[in-house]
Design a protein around this nucleic acid. Structure first.
Lengths: 216, 216, 216, 216
DNA sequence: CATGAATGAGTCTTCATTCAT
DNA sequence: AATGAATGAAGACTCATTCAT
């Protein structure tokens, strides 16, 4: 009935606008969490930033909790999407792919000050909101696996004789997380650029041939 | 100014029991934040865990905000105290001192699951609670400076020819933070022991002579 | 004034479908009140049961209050209509007419579980929604008058020597209401049939010659 | 500790005052339901009538639903208490006891206009709030059993030859409920006194020797 | 010192009503 | 006529803080 006429665009437009509104609200949520913190983020603060009325948030998200979940999911999916794109477009050698991963991890869309704040807010709640962890973990696993694979390959190629590429990979991931934290806490001294360089320098330390030190 | 030395506690109260009660409430706060998250931590949840009545919390801390600050201060102080002790007791060579610092950073008293959760909760709020940052930053600065100094010295001693010991130092700190996050999020796979080893392996990578790889 | 004859519906609308839709919504209202209670009945719950969109209810009824009024009016009218029909079709003797009234009062269309629930919901609000009472009272008065007249006549015919037929009539009406309540509260033990028998037994008690006890 | 000194009255006073407050809030709930109806009764309307602040209601009752339940329980218990007292103080013959039951059922404490409104509000919700029914049913069952027993006894004593005393009893209970409804809907014409007389007249009709008609 | 009753501001959520499509 | 997105007022409930005991 409603969609019997395939040429009718209305239903689609409605749906679209609904998606737009959801996205708008998620953006507002990110802004609010970044600005006020998760504890001080209220449906009011979100609605205000989205420029809509109070009740509109609950119209699109059944509950505040659901809004937060969807916000995290959005961040996770965005990271995943850019990550896929990054490794797809990278040359097919291991170090180029690893580099591509790093580049994504320090793209503005991923680690804007706002989004950093949101990521850490969610992580701070991971213990008692298992769903938060779940939302991230699929991608995290996939990414971790890929990094490990790449490290293994590079290790072999270079004959670096390092015992456990898996340890290097894990350490590398931890390093990036730590750099993210530094960027969050000390944005004046640790910038996106400096952190990115830092990450690459780590790769230079462990895989000197594949990642020759950039002369600054 | 007001907080010229943020980590130094107010002069000792008259009654000892008052101090005891304060400590009890801070412990309860840590437990509550770890268990319920910061957003769900209420004076009620703290009082319950401390086994005292509702109003007692406000008797010892003028406000909830102050309780949180004092809790963070307690954690920061504890870390500072153990850190001081660690480097005081360490042999006087640079790598021993650096190792001592790592040991402290993975002591149970510092990175128990509870305390990890609390640390990240505070960091997640650092952006809009500048005081939180302030409380940490004095110690963080001192520790960072020391690490940098030690790295420089080791670098010189070993003739590692790495361009910037300061970068190594920063990267090292970031790595530790990242390991903390891994311990928080994936306590099953990243334990205190494994994370500690990871940190030392990093030192082995950059200062192989000073930190020879431990054969497992 | 405005409601000089409260039970008479507004003049027929232009479109037939409008009337149909109104009836559909009233049925949905009855279903919703029966299922969820009056407090939990929302325009949403009504729309859902009617299978229409949210805003459609307000298209046909200016307000929720008006919808409720019209629903009550519908019930009252329906009772009135069946009552008129019942006494019209009854033989012309008093006891047959009284019996006819009882039969109507226990017809499924009048005392279905759903409708019972709705009746009592409205009565529970009669105190502060005078209009509800008004809607019922015209019919109630007429019916009460008729019952009293019939009782008087029967009383005279039978020479029962009961002081006040008016009291008998009132008592009889109260009994029926009470039986309705029993049917509402204990549908398992008090059924339409058993309640009907009960009502007739009462008539047997007071007018034994006119209503001889039915041997079961 | 707290109660070590048996002479200390404080703890008791506290408890007492808590009970007093609860009662106060239940009274306010009854007043509000009677005045505004159940749907329009809010925690605010209750708090206002009790002369306390908004949050105080939730301090003593975990939820609005619980407040309503406790209110119903209070009414049911009050009825039960007066009923027990009534039959305890009555002479030991069946008709006196039956009369006592009627007297209780029309006592002002039981059928004040306010309380009538509340009773019917609860009954109107009985279908989807099974707990409401549960709260009433224990007493209702006990009372019903007693009435039936008394009717049986009276029937035997009088040799009334009425087939089923149980039916008479049920009818009697229904009649009282119906009279309550009349009192609720038409307080001007059906008063406590008139309804009480009505009930007794019914008994005169079925048990003429035991309940001779009162000459008015 | 400690208690816990009371307060009332703040938050989430629901929902009647409006209105653009 | 019908839809359903948007609104915002109102309600239930929470909780930091106060204060009498």
């Amino acid at each position: 009935m409603k969609n019997s006429n395939i040429l009718v665009e209305k239903p689609k437009r409605r749906t679209e606008s609904k998606e737009v509104r959801r996205r708008q609200l998620i953006d507002a949520t990110i802004a609010s969490i970044a600005e006020l913190g998760m504890s001080n983020t209220t449906l009011g603060s979100v609605a205000k930033r989205a420029g809509v009325a109070h009740g509109t948030v609950n119209l699109h998200f059944p509950s505040k909790e659901n809004l937060l979940e969807e916000t995290l999911r959005f961040l996770a999916e965005q990271h995943y999407r850019l990550w896929l794109e990054g490794i797809k477009n990278a040359p097919n050698d291991a170090n180029a792919r690893l580099a591509a991963i790093v580049e994504v991890d320090f793209k503005l869309e991923i680690v804007s000050p706002q989004k950093l704040a949101v990521w850490f807010s969610f992580w701070a709640h991971a213990n008692y909101r298992p769903l938060y962890l779940e939302i991230c973990s699929q991608f995290d696993g996939e990414r971790g696996g890929e990094i490990e694979r790449l490290c293994s390959q590079i290790n072999e190629e270079g004959g670096y004789l390092l015992a456990k590429p898996s340890a290097i990979a894990q350490r590398f991931e931890a390093l990036i997380d730590g750099l993210w934290l530094s960027m969050l806490l000390y944005p004046e001294t640790v910038t996106r650029q400096s952190a990115r360089v830092d990450a690459f320098e780590y790769l230079s330390e462990v895989f000197p041939q594949h990642f020759p030190l950039q002369p600054l």
